[in-house]
Each structure stands twice: as C-alpha cells, then as structure tokens.
C-alpha cells in the first residue's frame, strides 16, 4: 500500500471503516486531544505569521526574509538560554530567563529589522513589487549562510535541532500532562499561553494606541494617511522592525519545541507556514491571520490524527493539506478569508 490513497478506500468495504472513524473521532479523549493539538499548533502558526501580516498590511512588501528572522530568533534565544541556564537553575528561574530572552531578542531583532528596512528596502519602494521579493529573498540567502557559518564554527550541525537549547526548558514543560483523558505536553499548553499573549499585545497595540491607529489607517490608504500629517516612512521602519521582532519572538518559542527546534532549515519551514497562514487569512488583516492560524492548526491536528490512527497511510498529509489549502484559497478567494479586494498601498 503506497501513496496517498486512504486505507479506508483500499479496504473496499468502506461502510464499517467510516463508522469506526466516526466513533473513534467522537470519543471525548480523541476530541480533546485534537483540540489541544490544534490550539498548540495554531498558537505557533499565529506567532510565526503575525509579523508578516503587519508588514504586508501596511507596506505591501511580502517579506521573504521573515522565516530567516524567526530562525535567527531561535538561535539568539537559544544562545541566551544556554549561556544563562545551568543544571542547577530551577524551573521558575528558567521560565523567567525565557521571558528575558524573548524581550532581549525582540529588542535586538526589532532594531535589526528597522535597519534592514532603511538600508535595503527603502531604496526600492518606487520599483516594481517584484524587486521587493527579490531583495528580501537575497537577505534570506545571506542571513541563512551567515548563521550556518557561525553555527559550524561553534562546532554544531546547522541542519539538526539545537539539542542543548531544547534542554533548557524546565522539566515540567517537557513532561506530558493529562487533560480530560488526553495526554499532551506541558510545553504545548505554554505555547498556547504565549501565543495568546502575543496576539493580545499586538491587538492592543493596533487598536488601543495612537501608533496602532496610524498603522491601521496607513494599511488602508497610506497616501491619505500621509496627507493627514502622518510620517508614513517612519511608520514603515517601525512596523518592519516590530514585524521582524515578532518573527524572532516566534523563533524563541520554537527553540524549546522538539517539533521544530533551532536549526537553519527552520528558516524555510517558518517562512512557508507564515505565507500559508497570512494568505489564507487575507494579506493585510491581522484578524484574518489569527483566524487562519486557528483553522490551519485545526487542519493540522485532524490530519495528524488521521495519520496516527492509521486511517491514512501518508506521513506528509498534514503538510500537504496546508499547501492545498493555500492553493485552494488563492483559487477561490484570492484576497483571503478576511482580506479586502485592494491590498497594499504600494
């Protein structure tokens, strides 16, 4: 039995298989497991995509370097943890250090993102959008290679996860816990918490602050915003910086997650996830990004369950469904679930 044909079709006698699938699925433990899995993945997906969504919304720049910022964040966060955490560090101290690492990485990468915007992207705003894709893609090539060099010089394997950084997570997060008859890892619930926090803070920034108002206005019509006295170029730098900082914060979280981990290929993985989530939600709407993150998380949890419970004999199913969803949304509703017809002021 090969390929993507579900086992239930190969079985020939489909009726009982569907019935058993449904009865398996409707089990409380299974459902709770799927929901928890969906939430933890969704939290990560929203984290990864949030910055990209902000940047595209305001500037119309599809930042291909987004995943590289996430990867860089994972390594920087890991470095902070590996240096500061020793075997004697207690679990709560580790959590405190984790938040410290997150704040520090956010600060550094926000400054870095602003610098990239000012030095590299600003000179090409007046060219075709194509060049912004090309330029940010060039940044990917350079950044990934630089990180690979540093990682190799430190005697580590750039392609495999950074185990030492994974090990800095406190024991109670690495252990499994049982919620309503379903087992999950403490870490995954921690990720839901972090994801919710980042969404809440970003949401608050957008809706409750003067600068957030400028960004929402500029996302709709950047020329009109300028004519009302808003320095849109400055807003571009700030947003590109904050978006890069958020990408890196996602990286700090992923550094602890054994399903991801700090590695150079994380750059591409994170970029593709961010693209899928942001496009399904609608380029340029933060609300859409959050909803799309939840949806993609749910797809992921259901398809992962289908594979693990041997209904489908195809390990790539979750990933494939993700890209199929991307393609399908672009065919049926290119502006995304929550997007507006006209996207981007540039």
């Amino acid at each position: 039995m090969t390929g993507i044909e579900p086992a239930l079709l190969a079985a020939g006698d489909a009726g009982p298989v569907v019935a058993s699938l449904l009865s398996d699925l409707l089990d409380v433990g299974t459902l709770v497991g799927i929901v928890l899995g969906a939430l933890s993945k969704a939290a990560l997906y929203v984290l990864i995509a949030a910055g990209l969504s902000l940047i595209f919304g305001l500037m119309g720049v599809l930042n291909f370097a987004h995943g590289s910022f996430t990867m860089l964040g994972a390594y920087l966060g890991g470095a902070v943890m590996v240096v500061l955490v020793s075997s004697g560090t207690g679990p709560y101290a580790r959590i405190a250090l984790f938040f410290l690492a997150m704040a520090a990485v956010f600060g550094v990468m926000t400054a870095f993102g602003s610098a990239v915007e000012k030095r590299l992207i600003r000179p090409i705003y007046d060219r075709q959008p194509l060049f912004q894709i090309l330029l940010t893609f060039g940044v990917v090539l350079v950044l990934d290679e630089l990180v690979r060099i540093v990682v190799e010089v430190r005697g580590m394997q750039p392609r495999s996860d950074w185990q030492e950084a994974l090990g800095t997570a406190p024991g109670f997060l690495q252990n499994t816990i049982t919620v309503a008859g379903s087992t999950t890892r403490g870490l995954y619930m921690f990720e839901v918490l972090i994801g919710a926090m980042v969404v809440a803070v970003t949401w608050g920034f957008l809706t409750r602050t003067r600068y957030g108002l400028y960004i929402r206005a500029g996302s709709e019509d950047s020329e009109m915003a300028q004519a009302l006295g808003i320095d849109i170029r400055k807003a571009f730098s700030v947003v590109f910086g904050v978006g890069s900082g958020l990408a890196a914060v996602a990286g700090v979280m992923l550094m602890w997650d054994p399903r991801f981990g700090a590695s150079v290929p994380l750059s591409t993985d994170a970029l593709l996830i961010a693209f899928v989530v942001v496009i399904i939600g609608g380029l340029g709407t933060f609300r859409g990004t959050v909803v799309a993150g939840l949806l993609v998380g749910l797809f992921d949890a259901v398809t992962t369950w289908l594979f693990h419970s041997a209904y489908v004999d195809f390990a790539g199913l979750p990933e494939m469904v993700m890209f199929l969803a991307l393609v399908l949304v672009l065919i049926v509703k290119p502006q995304g679930l929550f997007g507006v017809e006209e996207v981007g002021g540039h």
Binding site: L62, F275, A315, G316, E319, M320, L326, V327, L330, P334
Partner: peptide
C-alpha cells in the same frame, strides 16, 4: 504579482511534500 508567485509556490510545495513521502 505576489499572488501569482504564492500560488505557484503552493503548487510546487504540494508536489514537494508528495514526492518526499
């Protein structure tokens, strides 16, 4: 524009995941 780039990337990634598995 970017939408075309994204959908073609999406198709290639579907094939990429398929061939990997």
């Amino acid at each position: 524009g970017v939408y075309f780039a994204m959908i073609t990337l999406g198709f290639a990634e579907v094939a990429h995941v398929f061939i990997r598995n």
